[in-house]
Nucleic acid binder design. Structure first.
Length: 562
RNA sequence: UGGGGUGUCGCCAAGCGGUAAGGCAACGGACUCUGACUCCGUCAUUCGUAGGUUCGAAUCCUCCCACCCCAGCCA
């Protein structure tokens, strides 16, 4: 009995269509089994998240399984740090491989035996050509390659040579094992591809057991088959490798006819996604590390304040297809706002303070109440300390207001959120003409929640009581690059030329409402009228640090720009 | 001047011969003690181009154009 309802299969994208077709044809025993196969040579980024969501998500929706498999076939560039971080990131994203954590290196012995069988079948041979020679023999797109002189070696000699390669009798690069396919193929991957190379290096899992390592093209399809992977989902650049993938599945004795399906990798505006470039940003200290909140790495985004829900939702929204595409970063920002609007409690924080003195307010302050989250009444209310001296945002006052400005101005009134309506009576400046204080009066009849004045004001602004406010460092983040596509470069340019100098603005002494003293690292809030912020791990006992996840939408700011 | 792919609204993306979904962005407007949120409305007579088949084409055929990938003992 099929475990699926043929009339009720998911069909959001072409991969669903392919799988549905396979299921209807009764392939793979009606099972779907995928895998996420990172190489442990860097941190996972949002592009990997797309692949993770696709692989684990597809398995989930078909009631199948998804393995986590490290593609650790090149010991010279892989590190344990990445094996740890990758697992942490996949878990954080919300996926579970249960007990199916695998390594391509787990299969080294089996892969070796398969290679031996290929030699016996006269489908593989040891080749002594140097790299340069091999390049020449390979030919060009229009010129077929020429056969390696070493294809004439006997099975016995090949077997012996391959065994001696394994035994460490040769230097790095001295010999390789190649498949004997078709030197005239228009697909370079079929022109007798190398499947084993000699590399005398320490492998973090197999230690010094091996000095020959299988190539991706050999290890990947066979690992898939050995694990019973039905649908091997990878990115577009492997499309040219599919004939080789299929060749290996067809020419070896493996338990599963795994099938490779390619989709377009994710690109996002104003950032870069290649591991090489991200590594450079880290190694050359353009950012503070792999988890710098400006990085598109999952570690960076986590620290920035992105939630797994928002990222998963983003991956769902962008869809899956085969055309190269670049998603606008606004889509990502929309997803985190959507999540945090509901999830984050409201709080008041003044980033660029200007002092306000309420001349007619008593010396003793009072405690007011404010809603924690209008989207979630069940979150209740919090206490707000109010007093004669306050801070408001400098940008919420204009001595000579422009048209359309409806915040505080001389002689004008605004409401202080959750408090009173105040009027600005006097502007105090220092000798340089800089505004240092606003003398205002409050209207006691306008108390929030109990307004008996009937007054209507256009603007409501946030504030913080001077006496009880706590100081904090606030880090405002913007796009890492100031160019929409930092990969699109003219002659002589480098992508680092386009790093955004304003990608991080540090505000050393912002004023936060007192209640924020109890925030834990990782807690996120909406700083009302400004954006979403998360308490960073750099916080100390005396000085909390908050990262801006993303600003609120700002239609006033937009209107002003015009 | 080889091979493999892709071209549907500013950005993603459905569509699979029956007459262009949806999301983001944008733009109007309503609401608002967050110029936020929410809500309402506008936003492809047209599917890279040109032909053809058909009663009917984004969907089928042909030519052309543009872009991406491939000559690692990387993945």
């Amino acid at each position: 009995m099929p475990e699926f309802n043929a009339d009720n299969l998911p069909s959001r994208h072409f991969i669903n269509h392919i799988i549905n077709e396979d299921l209807k044809l009764g392939k793979y025993n009606q099972k779907v089994h995928t895998r996420f196969p990172p190489e442990p040579n860097g941190y996972l980024h949002i592009g990997h998240a797309k692949s993770i969501c696709l692989n684990f998500g597809t398995a989930q929706e078909y009631g199948g399984l998804c393995n986590l498999r490290f593609d650790d076939t090149n010991p010279s560039r892989e590190e344990d740090e990445f094996i740890q971080s990758i697992q942490a990131d996949v878990k954080w994203l919300g996926f579970d491989w249960q007990d199916r954590l695998y390594f391509a290196s787990d299969y080294f012995e089996e892969l070796y035996q398969i290679a031996v069988q290929l030699i016996k079948d006269k489908k593989a041979y040891v080749c002594d050509l140097t790299q340069d020679e091999m390049r020449e023999y390979r030919g060009t797109p229009t010129v077929p390659g020429t056969l390696s002189p070493y294809t004439s070696r006997s099975v016995e000699e090949n077997l012996d040579m391959f065994a001696r390669m394994r035994a460490g009798e040769f230097q790095d690069g001295e010999k390789v094992l190649r498949l004997r396919i078709d030197m005239a193929s228009s697909n370079f991957n079929m022109r007798d591809p190398v499947i084993y190379r000699i590399q005398h290096s320490y492998h973090q899992r197999t230690k010094n057991d091996w000095c020959i390592y299988p190539m991706y093209d050999f290890a990947h399809p066979l690992s898939d088959a050995l694990e019973g992977i039905t649908h091997s989902i990878c990115t577009l650049e492997f499309e040219n490798h599919r004939p080789l993938y299929d060749w290996l599945i067809a020419n070896t004795d493996v338990p599963c006819k795994s099938r490779q399906i390619e989709f377009a990798r994710l690109n996002i505006t104003y950032t870069v996604m290649s591991k090489r470039k991200l590594r450079r940003l880290v190694e050359e200290s353009f950012v503070s590390g792999w988890d710098d909140p400006r990085m598109p790495t999952l570690a960076g985004m986590r620290r920035r304040g992105y939630t797994p829900e928002a990222i998963r939702n983003f991956c769902e929204k962008i869809g899956v297809a085969k055309s190269n595409s670049t998603v606008e970063i606004e889509m990502l920002e929309y997803c985190i706002r959507e999540d945090l609007n509901y999830a984050a409690n409201r709080v008041m924080a003044v980033l660029d303070p200007i002092k306000v003195v309420l001349t007619n307010y008593p010396e003793n302050g009072e405690t007011l109440m404010g809603s924690n989250n209008p989207e979630k009444p069940e979150e209740g209310q919090r206490e707000l300390s109010f007093s004669k001296e306050l801070y408001i945002e400098a940008s919420d006052f204009m001595e000579e207001p422009v048209k359309g400005f409806h915040r505080l101005m001389p002689g004008g009134e605004v409401r202080l959120k959750s408090a009173y309506i105040i009027r600005c009576d006097e502007v105090i400046k220092d000798e340089t003409g800089k505004i240092i204080e606003l003398r205002c009066s409050y209207d006691p009849k306008t108390k929030s929640g109990n307004d008996q004045s009937g007054k209507k004001v256009k603007g409501t602004i946030h504030w913080v009581a001077a006496k009880t406010a706590i100081d904090a460092e606030v880090r405002l983040y913007e796009h890492l690059f100031c160019k929409e596509n930092p990969d699109d470069l003219d002659e002589g340019e480098e992508f680092t030329d386009y790093l955004n100098p304003a990608s991080l603005t540090v505000i050393p002494n912002a004023k936060l409402e007192a209640g924020l003293a109890k925030a834990d690292i990782g807690d996120s809030y909406q700083f009302m009228r400004q954006g979403y912020f998360i308490k960073d791990k750099d916080s100390t006992q005396n000085k909390p640090v908050f990262n801006r996840v993303v600003s609120l939408k700002d239609s006033w700011g937009k209107m002003q720009k015009k």
